[in-house]
Design a protein around this nucleic acid. Structure first.
Lengths: 119, 119
DNA sequence: CTGATAAATCGTATTATTACGATCTAACCA
DNA sequence: TGGTTAGATCGTAATAATACGATTTATCAG
């Protein structure tokens, strides 16, 4: 179909898939890395930094916003974007748990640590 | 377009997006958790365990296989699927690095640990 | 060889995604 | 008020993804 079946999956599985889906495009990865480097930056900075049009960047920003991973703060005519730490950490823990529970025993120790911080 | 622009992104960004994309569907999350529980299981077990048709499951298995996250081993008419530890750990480290470099300082300590194991 | 079973693949309908030019909106300055 | 700038949204074209019935392929049992 193109539309995913939702019923039959747990909320945790749906959230995890939602976070991973938001990360599932190189432009959105690049945007997040861009935001991480500058800690906070204008939409226009991202447009200048990536090989995509302003409209496309805006669309990717919307996708990241809808997943909750970033937030925008209007400042006059421009918008400062930044990573939303709360949801970002939720995604981090959700993915950490996935790797914790799906990674074979021999290599589990290190991925286990990632879910310890409960901030 | 529907087709993503590839040029202008680093191989690391492309790989990361590819792994995340493979994880970006609840059925594929569920399949991986299923494989993790049983350590190795038949395709038919997954079909029985999820609310999707055999054809759809097979399609999701193909997506996970193409991303390298799982591998299949024929056993007679049936196929045993299991997580591919090598690529799985690559994905784990790639995502760990993303969270390491994109997570604000106050909460970085724990996610840093996830990339220490170099198996 | 025949039949049965497991899984992949085909065909196809539906919806989602990606990309970009063009336009709209909001905030600012003169 | 009029012009400028930043960013979002619209419209649209092309392609990917999702789902499933039907069919094919491969393997084993008899």
């Amino acid at each position: 179909m193109g539309a995913s079946k939702i019923d039959g999956f747990t909320p945790a599985q749906l959230h995890l898939a939602e976070y991973a889906h938001a990360l599932g495009h190189p432009a959105r990865i690049a945007i997040l890395q861009f935001l991480a480097q500058r800690r906070r930056c204008l939409c226009g900075d991202i447009v200048n930094g990536l090989p995509l049009s302003q409209a496309t960047i805006s669309q990717h920003l919307k996708a990241l916003r809808q997943a909750g991973l970033i937030k925008g703060h209007s400042d006059g005519p421009s918008v400062h974007y930044s990573i939303d730490e709360k949801i970002w950490n939720r995604a981090r823990h959700a993915l950490g748990n996935l790797f914790l529970h799906c990674t074979p025993a021999e290599t589990q120790e290190t991925s286990a640590v990632v879910v310890q911080s409960q901030d």
